[in-house]
Amino acid sequence: MAEIIYNISAIIALAGMIIALYRMVKGPSIADKAIALDVMTIISISLIVYIAAISQKIIYTDVALVYALISFIGVIAIARYLERGL
């Protein structure tokens, strides 16, 4: 029962990722695409911890830690490029 609910949650998160991809394809400005990248990063952190939990390996969460600490630098770099501060 609980495992089925966990799987349904992961599928809902994957659907959110597909919607964010649609915004990235369509997005009129660069800022829209960067927001879509941000949302996809957050959803992938959730998915990594989900994979670590269902495959019973603690050490996989280290990858999620690296993501949470490093990936926002890319979005900040895009923002600084847009406002000519790079």
């Binding site: 490093i70 630098i73 900040i76 770099a77 600084r80 790079l86």
Partner: peptide, 9 residues
């Protein structure tokens, strides 16, 4: 290096 990059930005 990413930490130094954040300082640079």
């Amino acid at each position: 290096a990413s930490g130094v990059l954040l300082l640079m930005l």
